[in-house]
Design a protein around this nucleic acid. Sequence first.
DNA 1: CTGAAAGCGCTTACAG
DNA 2: CTGAAAGCGCTTACAG
Lengths: 344, 344
Amino acid sequence: MAVTMEQIAKQVGVSRGTVDRALHGRPGVKLEVAQRIKEVAKELGYKPNLAGKLLSDKQYGKHLIGIILVTENNPFFDEVISGAKAAVEEFQEFGISGVIRILVEYDARRQIEIMDELLEMGAQGFVMTPILDPRIDERIGQLKKEGIRVVTINSDIQTKDRLAYVGCHHRQSGIVMAELLSLLADGREVNVAVLAGTEKNLAVTRRRQGFLDYLERESANIHIVCQRANEDDSQISYVQTKEILKEHQNVDYLCVLGAGISGTLKALEEQEEGVQPKLLVYDLIQDVKEAMARKLVKASITQEPYRQGYNGVQIMAKYLAFDQHPESDVVNTELAVVLSSCLR
Amino acid sequence: MAVTMEQIAKQVGVSRGTVDRALHGRPGVKLEVAQRIKEVAKELGYKPNLAGKLLSDKQYGKHLIGIILVTENNPFFDEVISGAKAAVEEFQEFGISGVIRILVEYDARRQIEIMDELLEMGAQGFVMTPILDPRIDERIGQLKKEGIRVVTINSDIQTKDRLAYVGCHHRQSGIVMAELLSLLADGREVNVAVLAGTEKNLAVTRRRQGFLDYLERESANIHIVCQRANEDDSQISYVQTKEILKEHQNVDYLCVLGAGISGTLKALEEQEEGVQPKLLVYDLIQDVKEAMARKLVKASITQEPYRQGYNGVQIMAKYLAFDQHPESDVVNTELAVVLSSCLR
DNA sequence: CTGAAAGCGCTTACAG
DNA sequence: CTGAAAGCGCTTACAG
């Protein structure tokens, strides 16, 4: 027979409420009483019954997960969303539910607003792609003190106040692109243009760093002829690609480090015959797949987006429902290079 | 908000009890009412809340697993037991508990008695090593009709009435020994004596079959000079090994297909210098490990005993607690040959 | 600082 | 054939 709080309460001569408070270090129990309760719990080998906790928690809406992703315009996140939804579905039978909010711009203030709205709705944890901004880090730190934890997915934050991060190793993802470039250049002199996403996303910022560091260290034959930040925006990407094509006749490779690739593709398609830089990109949105079939994109580096959503929610669900902490606070998804032949 | 039975009840205009009965096909609900309830449940997208079920089930002692293993004298089962205990422990927080009973002899009647005792105690499922006897198969079939399922571990039964089997592929385990023998013989003529366990254990029976079939088909150079059934008993094993050593001077390999190896080891140790058959055995009990260090045992074929106990209980626990059926009704543990150098 | 009570969703013994 | 009620173990709002 499993030991229950009731039994501990009887043994110590207090109520079940007091046992609960003591065992969870909640305020309002006399120190000696609390100590005695913990002792007896240990003696009897008390293990909480998760079904009881789960059911009670439900009463207080303790199992709502707020899921916040960034940029609706980036179809990459469709995969992340599928993964997140699948995990919510799977944990539904344990009383977990989720609300998904999509942020259209890299606007930290707006992201905080959304967090507050979800808190209002009763969110007890967040799974989110944080915008790179000190205000976000600060908010996450505050929430932690209130017992509300955050799992970052796809892009991480600077502090360790989050429960876990699920996504590729940012810096490594840049190095993969650089190594690929080196392999393709094979010692020849090549010129590279870089479209680098946004400074508001830690993932792409660190990726760029890894990319540039590797090239500087390893590949004297690879020359970066220009760099732009396209803000992960397809429109901006289109304009910037046009400009690059005009200003630099000698670009061999165009590397797009973040989102907004569709704009770049459009610009390249419109390019009259002549210098066509080879495209290297990240992730497999539909446009990229089609462009790979047409050999416009030579390769794409992938990072398991579905798993990012799935594992992110899974970690939070287990934390909320079962009090289970993740085994590691970093879950790195796999990086791989996909060529057109990989897609059939 | 997740849909509850309460909501369905309101919608249809019946009580929660009736909803429960209808949704689970329990007797005593008018057909039309039951149909209507199922319809509405589907419409609303009802998914049962596992916490509620778990908690209620506990009230009726629905989560007791009876664990029955055979032969205390076989230390192999210590590992199985550790695995089973670990799994019970892990599922304790979901209200699962387990009772372990060890059967000292291959006595089908006694095994059924133990099953009945455990049922008396409220066992709702069994994880067991079944004795090879039609009465056991029959009992398992009966229990199935009453909704009480059995997971067989280590050795299987003939019928498909069990929920799952966890253990090595019996026949294959015999083939591994035969192939090993062929490799060792390397084309030379060799004489082999076989100690074959008991006919009351399907695992060893099929193992013997696989062993003999392979040799007959593949290895004309390997001669079985004698075969005995040691009933998995160390004492009998000791006597039989003595006899074999006396009667056959020309035995190159002694293969022990079941338990009782310690007796064989004792007999070989007592053998004065002279013909020492090389021992090939199954599993890694302490005696075998020590005998391997002394090169008395050349090799042992292993089958992941810990995992057998662990997975067996795990499958039953998920079935009882979460209504989860195993993905496959056979989980084959890995077979491997362990040499003395593998043990350090 | 502590207790009594209610309620989470489910299942079943009991009554009708 | 069906409903009302109790209870599984836990947590918390409320009262004192």
